[in-house]
Design a protein around this nucleic acid. Structure first.
Lengths: 244, 244
DNA sequence: CCCTTGATTTGACCACGATCAAGGAAAAGG
DNA sequence: CCTTTTCCTTGATCGTGGTCAAATCAAGGG
């Protein structure tokens, strides 16, 4: 009783769109009070973008930030001659943007269909300046991204192709279903990336990715249906293959 | 006149050790007021550690943070079977530590002789909690480290051995002498890492690193004296070799 | 239904970087 | 000083993963 009442009070004034939004619960918006939420909501817009759509180009000036509501965004970097590397994946409810810097150091592109909640950089920058809670939340997310980036450096620098592909599948499995970490039942999910994207994420070619997936399938570590849907009967076996 | 007077006032009360400290000017201590500086100084201790000394072990609980005063610290991760990857290098006046997490996700080891200014985690954590400026500074450093990590992922995933070694030399050159970025005169420096460390940073073997250094030397891109001292006559040529 | 288009798989071959092995050079210790 | 140890270089050979090429599969569109 009291419980529900308090919840109502707490939600009163919260913009409708925010109420069910993951960004409000686990993302940066969780650091905002009702007043700030209303203000931000007034200047934000929901967008749906298609796979392949570019959100921010490398070196481009940033005018907007966004929260990922659903889907997967890939952050990529390119060498002058065109070789490409995916340097990060952002899932809901990650914050998308680079505070305190005018230009982005990498490009951001929708890997799947993506829903965004976009808002102006200047407004957030102002809110950051006078809301320590928001800055704290950003620091936490950034530290987590740094940890993930460094984990991935180990994968890129020292693992074999077979281990890289297994590591990738494990990473996706865990991100799609955080419970999968230590579940012993089978888990299954759709790959959010094409073979070409997977190759760019792992520093491999698509042929090698394909061959290693086939190998995992033939060895019974995974099942693949229609190229995108993957089932992992035993996460522990996958982890072994990934040298985790 | 007025200038120097103000400076005196500004420095009055500042602990002697901090006055000439880089961490105070470019590092996190720059975000502290005199009072905080005095408090921190009272609970901090300068240490000198030798190359190879381990500062923080992987998975170990963290009880201390530190500023790097001089020298280079390498952050490393290891696979169960012993393969190792350096996931970051910290130079003065970088902050060393992982706020908001009990255990470290990587090990930290002195690559050269290193001077540290160490202080207790709990004190800093409390100072962070009520000093938005400090948290802001930490966020900035973390964002920069994230950018660097992602830059390096491109190097690890997509560059050839030759390009990796050139990229490493360029990175060190720029870190030792930030002006080197666009200088056209020759620059020279001591390598802070052994061949083995360079290999671990680049995801290569020491043999390959050695061969590529020899190649760069024979091609006149660099000169090497007594294995550690490197001279780069033309930074632009090095950048070309690094595919920057 | 067939044709087009793009994504994925598979095969044959090759090269880059790893591995194995030895020798040389520089620093450390007696 | 010479010895020992560590670090670095160089050479010979091997194998993983890249390259090139073709076949197969899946999804729309006419």
């Amino acid at each position: 009783m009291d419980e529900t009442l308090r919840k109502d009070i707490h939600n009163s004034g919260v913009p409708a769109l925010c109420r069910a939004c993951e960004a409000r619960h686990r993302g940066v918006c969780g650091a905002l009070n009702v007043e700030q939420l209303v203000l931000l909501n007034k200047h934000s817009v929901r967008k749906k973008v298609e796979p392949g759509d570019e959100l921010v180009a490398e070196e481009q000036d940033i005018s907007n930030y966004a929260n990922v509501i659903s889907g997967v965004v890939k952050l990529t970097k390119m060498l002058p001659d065109g070789r490409q590397q995916i340097v990060g994946l952002q899932f809901a409810p990650d914050f998308l943007g680079r505070p305190f810097s005018k230009a982005s150091k990498h490009s951001a592109e929708a890997a799947t269909e993506v829903e965004l909640c976009a808002f102006s950089k200047s407004l957030i920058d102002r809110m950051i300046a006078d809301s320590p809670d928001l800055e704290h939340k950003l620091l936490e997310q950034t530290l987590n991204e740094l940890d993930e980036a460094r984990d991935w450096m180990l994968t890129l620098g020292r693992k074999t192709a077979a281990e890289k592909v297994a590591s990738f599948l494990h990473l996706i499995a865990v991100h799609i279903d955080p419970e999968a970490q230590d579940a012993d039942g089978p888990i299954s999910f759709d790959l959010p990336l094409t073979r070409a994207d997977i190759a760019d994420y792992l520093g491999l070619t698509i042929e090698t990715v394909s061959r290693q997936l086939t190998k995992l399938r033939k060895d019974g570590v995974i099942q693949i249906e229609s190229n995108r849907h993957v089932t992992v009967p035993d996460v522990l076996r996958l982890e072994e293959r990934a040298s985790l």
